[in-house]
Simulated assay, not measured.
Amino acid sequence: MAERTVFQSLSRRHVLSLGPQSSVWEAACVMTRANCGSVLILDTPGTLLGILTERDLMTRVLAKAQDPQTTRVSEVMTPNPHCVAPDMKVSEAVLIMIERGFRHLPIVSAAGKILGVFSVRDALPREIGDAVSLAEFNDQVNDALG
């Protein structure tokens, strides 16, 4: 069976997005209503500026006692997030997530259209296992090469 692409694996095709001036409180409400772990931050022409995740809310807002109603998403988002192409294999995307500590990757077409957000939850156990094996192999090669 051929491995799925990140686009094929998306459990939801609707992209949650907000403008950079939105409050963190608005973002948390949007994410909660949609039962989603991230929201993309877009400027008015639809250009991707950043991503705000549950982890960002916890580490950059709650842990620092920021007021969610006055803090703008642009102040606490992850700017210029790593994006992947829709035809990337799931195990390759999961490997990026493992190596870089991400849980969400925006999927962007060659033309720059935002197609969705791949979450580690979209991966199947087999695909996660393949990515972990590849990460372990990469570590072994790096150790051997010094």
Rank of each mutant, 00 (worst) to 15 (best):
L52T: 03
E99F: 00
R55Y: 06
H82M: 12
G37C: 08
G101T: 01
R60L: 07
T47L: 01
D43S: 05
E75V: 05
V76S: 10
T44N: 10
T70A: 10
P86W: 11
D87F: 13
A93C: 08
A93E: 03
H82R: 13
C29R: 14
R100Q: 14
I98P: 04
L52Q: 02
Q66P: 00
G37R: 04
N80E: 12
M31S: 11
P79S: 14
T44R: 14
L95E: 05
L40N: 08
S91Y: 08
P68T: 03
R60N: 12
S91E: 10
I51R: 00
V90E: 09
A34D: 03
L62A: 14
I41T: 08
T44M: 04
A93W: 02
T47N: 12
R60V: 07
L95Q: 04
E92R: 15
Q69G: 00
M58D: 01
P81K: 10
Q66W: 07
A63E: 12
D87K: 13
I98D: 05
N80F: 03
V94I: 15
V84A: 07
I51K: 01
I96L: 15
L42H: 12
S74M: 10
M58I: 14
G101K: 03
A34P: 09
L52A: 06
T44C: 02
R60Q: 14
L52E: 08
Q66L: 15
T71Q: 05
A63G: 03
V39C: 13
E54Y: 04
D87R: 14
P68I: 02
G37Y: 06
L42Y: 07
E54S: 10
K89M: 14
D67A: 13
R55K: 13
R72C: 10
R100E: 09
T71K: 06
G46N: 12
M77L: 15
I51N: 00
I98S: 06
R100S: 09
C36P: 00
T70V: 13
V90D: 09
R100H: 14
P81L: 08
L48V: 02
N35K: 10
A34F: 09
A63M: 12
P68L: 05
M88C: 12
H82Q: 14
T59E: 11
C83L: 02
M58T: 07
V61E: 01
D56K: 05
L52G: 07
N35G: 01
S38I: 03
M97K: 08
M77W: 10
H82T: 14
I96E: 06
L40V: 11
D67R: 11
S91C: 11
A93F: 04
P81A: 09
M97L: 10
T78K: 03
V90C: 15
I98W: 03
L40P: 11
L57P: 05
R100T: 06
L62I: 15
M58G: 00
L40W: 08
